[in-house]
Simulated assay, not measured.
Amino acid sequence: MQNTIKADARSTVPRSSSSLLNFIKKHYFLYLMLAPALILTLIFKYGPMYGAIIAFKDFSPIKGILGSEWVGLYNFNKFLSSPNFEVIFMNTLKLSFFGLILSFPVPILLALMLNQVRKSAVKKNIQLFLYAPNFISVVVVVGMLFIFMSPTGPINQILTWATGEPVMFMSRPEYFRWIYILSDIWTSAGWASIIYVAALANVDPELHNAANLDGANLLQRIRHIDLPTIRPIMAIVFILAAGGIMSIGFEKAYLMQTATNLPTSEIIPTYVYKIGLQSGDYAYSAAVGLFNSLINVVLLITVNFIVKKLNEGDGLY
């Protein structure tokens, strides 16, 4: 039966240019529906790739991209040899890495806990409470952080009562990463758990009933039934997150920056913004951004390869 299904599936795939044209003519309406998304992807995703060439030029807006002088890897060497490179690179890597390690398990735990709530009304109210922070603007979130953690804010009022002096959370470099990561978990973990909740909803209840009859406790049912169900999704989400480990959000980090926490808050995206838009060094900023993208591509391929080896072939490709 499986061989028959595979043979039928292969028979529907066009094998020549003429059959491909006939296939497109037969299903032209589906291709028309696909056309807007394809056009937008080409314009806004692939089209801007042409501008990456300025990373290899001494770009001048007057001369244009093609008219500017070719300098090869000069801008990349300039960044790699700059005194700020190690600090900026390590800040980006640490913030992204610790953020991934701490935030990745939280949506899974939330989904597993939500899956144990049997009353539909209670479950919906809990989900609404968990998903709501995702819809709060980044600007509002950072404003809340500055208010709650200010010297006269509620957190410092408690600390002052307990220790006798406030803590300058937003201006101390050692607190920046923890505040960034924990607030990011608060805003995104609930929304990120949706995909796991949906996967767990497809688990056959008979499996849990059979496990109960065999004497399995809750943790055993989660380990042997729920986790294997969402394992492929976990692998894909982890690969995508690890592949974008250097593409940390710019807006939140920039808004949380102060003059005194720059030793830990200055990351590649904020550095690109400052040298590109504020200083007008477009070629140099493009080189830094392209370097960041290349690191992400390498990480994506590497992590995908490792996960496929460890997870029985579950990967992006």
Rank of each mutant, 00 (worst) to 15 (best):
L213H: 05
W186F: 13
L255I: 04
T12L: 13
Y282L: 15
Y31N: 09
V138L: 14
P107T: 09
T264G: 02
I136R: 01
R223I: 12
K119L: 13
K124I: 11
L128Q: 09
I39T: 08
A9W: 05
W161G: 08
K78Y: 07
L100A: 09
I195V: 15
G99W: 00
G315M: 07
S120L: 14
N311Y: 11
V13D: 15
L93I: 10
S120K: 15
Y317P: 02
G276K: 03
L277M: 09
L277V: 02
T258G: 01
A111T: 12
L114P: 05
A35N: 04
L66K: 03
L100I: 12
N311P: 00
F148D: 10
K45N: 13
L38Q: 04
L93N: 01
L128Y: 09
G164R: 03
T260K: 06
I5Y: 10
A235G: 02
P133L: 08
L114N: 06
F85D: 04
D214E: 14
N3V: 08
I245S: 02
G243L: 05
T260R: 05
L159N: 08
I101T: 01
A121I: 09
A235H: 07
A192P: 00
M256K: 06
K26H: 12
S19Y: 07
S81C: 06
F104Y: 13
A192S: 12
R231P: 00
R231Y: 11
Y317A: 14
G315H: 04
K25L: 14
S17P: 00
K25M: 13
I158A: 15
S137K: 03
L95N: 04
F59W: 15
I185R: 02
F56S: 08
G276H: 12
K308V: 05
Y131E: 11
I275L: 12
A210W: 06
A55G: 05
S183E: 11
N217C: 14
K124H: 10
K6E: 14
S247E: 12
Y273I: 03
T187R: 14
P151C: 03
V106M: 14
L294E: 01
L130W: 01
D214Q: 11
A198C: 13
I43T: 07
L73K: 00
T160S: 14
L310R: 10
N84T: 11
F44H: 04
Y284S: 06
A235F: 05
A35R: 00
K119V: 13
P151Q: 03
S150W: 10
N217Q: 13
K26A: 13
H224G: 06
V203G: 10
Q220R: 10
G164N: 11
V303Q: 02
R172F: 05
V298C: 13
